[in-house]
Structure formats: C-alpha cells, structure tokens
Simulated assay, not measured.
Amino acid sequence: MKVPIGITTLHLSQKSALLLLLAVGLLGFGGYDYVQQSQAVDNAVAVQATITDARVDRMEGGRGIDYEPEIRYTYQYQGETYTSEQVFPSTGVRTYSDRSRAESVVESYEPGATTRAYVSPADPNDAFLVRERTPWPLRAIAIGGFLSVIGVLAGLGAKSPGQQELRPASEVQPAPRETWVDSHGETVHRLSKQGLGVCFVGFWLSLVALVFGLLNTTGGFGGPPQEIQAELLGPVGLSMLAGFSFWVGMVLSLCLYGVWSFTEYRQLRQRLSASKPPSPFRHPSRLVTILGTGDGDLSEYGQRVRLTGWVLLIAAGMTATLAYLLYTAS
C-alpha cells in the first residue's frame, strides 16, 4: 500500500497499515476523551448530592483483578432529580489494581451523607464527583503517538533492508583494534545466556513463592480481601525482593547479550561489499523494517541486526516497566 504524504510516500505493509490504524484509533479516542473531560471540568456547575451507595467492586478480567470505586448518588438540577454512578469526568471506567487505592476513593462517601457533585449544563445526566481529569486520555495519546512513529518509520524504510549477502571471512582483513568483548566473545555470550536462564527460572520461582506466601498470610482462597502488611524478611517480603533481583538480573543479562550481539553485527558488517548500506542502528526507519521482517527473508547480516535490535528493545522495555512499578509504589 502506498500513501503519499507531502513530498514523500509511505510504503506500508499489511502489518504497518494495521499498526497505523490502531495508532489513529488511540489518538482519536484519547484526544476526544481529553477534550470531553476538559470541557466537563471547566464548565461544570456544583450541586448538592446525596450518597445512596458506596462500595468497591471487584472485577476479574484477562489481565488480572481490578477494583472499581462504585458510588451511587442522587442530585437535583433545575428542578429535576437525577441519579448517577460516575465518579470522574471520563467516558471510561477508572479502575485500580490496588484495592486500597480504590477504597481511599470510596471512604470519603458514606451512604446517606451529602456531598458536592458537578453537573454539565449541556448534559445534566452526566454528573461526577471528583473534579479532575483522569490519566487515561494522555496515556492513550502517548501510546498512539509511539505506534504511529513506528508505523511511519516502517513505511519510510527501505523495501528490503537486511538482505545483503556477506563476503567470505577470508577476504576481509581483521580490524586493527579489538575490544575486550571481541577477544572474550565466547565467554560473554555464554555468561549472558546462562545468567538470563538462571534469572528467568528464579523470577518465576519467586512468583510461586510469593503466591504461597500470600495464601498463608490471608488464610487461603475464598476469604474476603484483606490488606496485607508484609515484612521485608518475611515470606512475602523475601519473595518480592528475590523477584526484583531476578528481574534486574534478566535486564543485565540481556544488556550483556546485546553488547556481544552488537559486536558480532560489527564484525559481519565488515564482510559487506564496498558499497555498504546505511547502518540500521543510525537509521531508525531501516531498523524498524528489519525488526518486522521474518528470519527467512533476511540474510545472516539482517538476522543479526534483527536479534540485536529486539534484545535491546526488550531490555529497555523491562527497564521502563521496573521504573514504572517503582514509581507507582512510591
């Protein structure tokens, strides 16, 4: 598929087209919800509301258990009585993975108590209690923007990068300078793979230990949800500390493997013909295209670029996930 944009043309594969379609959907929905929330917050009129019910609803889905603060209240606006369950001025439902955070929202609203609600004069049916924007629209816009950049880079990239054939190693003069990784490549390769395997198994074992520790703390399945006070040197605390350590170990092992793989890529690049293509690691459009290409359609050189790129991306993603969890937990 060819899509003309200004002075250039995007050459989109089916995967790239679907990726851009998803990106446009996220950008559109996120932008629409952000505008709706902004208008609701800016134009809302305060009214008195009476709480009729306030509780935390447990929701089980494909990604685990979430908790939704569910508050029902009645209010009057211009002589009419309305009922609403909306807490935030968002078109979506805001849930929490931590029950205590959902309870902190509900605890301010006791049944029978009066509180302040906010009504949009243009649509008095949609009142809300908390006059602040939810983070979901900006997250959707950020994800949509990231996916659109990936899709555009894939469309701008060369049609078939990573297919260059290599000259025989005997025809290539060795590099005049060797790094420590060059001279100890086999050791680095072996240690990175062994470290990744050990940390991967250890991480999942620590999760199993964490589950058993939680079951012993809460008394097993079927009981009401409880707030857990975990000691650092107790079963739950040690399991979490071990899981954190193994996760960091996997990131470090991936980085070590990525360094070795990048060194291998540099050695293979020396075996390309005199008219070498631009380096994929300096031209993101070429790298994105190679990352989305199957191994069967790549030469040895292209497969090394693809493996190196994915390893470094996974390490960066795991690091970002860890940073996000530490930030939300603080």
Score class of each variant (00 low, 15 high):
residue 311 V to A: 09
residue 2 K to S: 13
residue 217 T to L: 08
residue 188 V to P: 06
residue 230 A to W: 13
residue 220 G to H: 04
residue 65 I to Q: 11
residue 24 V to F: 11
residue 131 R to G: 06
residue 198 V to L: 15
residue 200 F to S: 15
residue 37 Q to P: 11
residue 185 G to Y: 15
residue 213 G to M: 12
residue 304 R to F: 00
residue 328 T to C: 02
residue 273 S to W: 05
residue 97 S to G: 15
residue 45 V to H: 01
residue 50 T to K: 15
residue 206 S to L: 09
residue 208 V to H: 08
residue 325 L to M: 10
residue 301 Y to G: 06
residue 6 G to L: 08
residue 56 V to P: 09
residue 198 V to C: 09
residue 138 L to N: 07
residue 119 V to R: 02
residue 326 L to W: 12
residue 291 L to I: 04
residue 206 S to F: 06
residue 195 G to D: 12
residue 213 G to E: 09
residue 322 L to F: 07
residue 130 V to K: 09
residue 83 T to K: 13
residue 294 G to V: 00
residue 301 Y to T: 01
residue 326 L to H: 10
residue 120 S to N: 15
residue 330 S to R: 09
residue 251 V to S: 01
residue 108 S to Q: 14
residue 43 N to F: 08
residue 5 I to D: 01
residue 311 V to K: 03
residue 327 Y to K: 12
residue 215 L to Y: 04
residue 44 A to I: 03
residue 52 T to N: 14
residue 300 E to F: 03
residue 37 Q to D: 08
residue 270 Q to C: 00
residue 210 L to A: 13
residue 44 A to K: 07
residue 266 R to H: 07
residue 123 D to I: 03
residue 329 A to Y: 10
residue 63 R to D: 14
residue 5 I to W: 05
residue 184 H to M: 02
residue 266 R to M: 10
residue 159 K to F: 00
residue 31 G to Y: 02
residue 49 A to G: 02
residue 269 R to W: 12
residue 186 E to C: 00
residue 67 Y to E: 04
residue 204 W to K: 04
residue 244 F to S: 12
residue 175 A to Y: 07
residue 215 L to S: 04
residue 288 V to M: 12
residue 126 D to L: 13
residue 180 W to N: 03
residue 230 A to L: 05
residue 177 R to W: 12
residue 186 E to G: 12
residue 276 K to W: 05
residue 195 G to H: 03
residue 62 G to E: 14
residue 59 M to I: 15
residue 259 V to A: 13
residue 238 L to K: 12
residue 45 V to D: 05
residue 65 I to S: 13
residue 77 Y to H: 12
residue 172 V to C: 09
residue 25 G to Q: 09
residue 228 I to Q: 10
residue 158 A to H: 07
residue 259 V to C: 02
residue 56 V to Y: 11
residue 160 S to V: 03
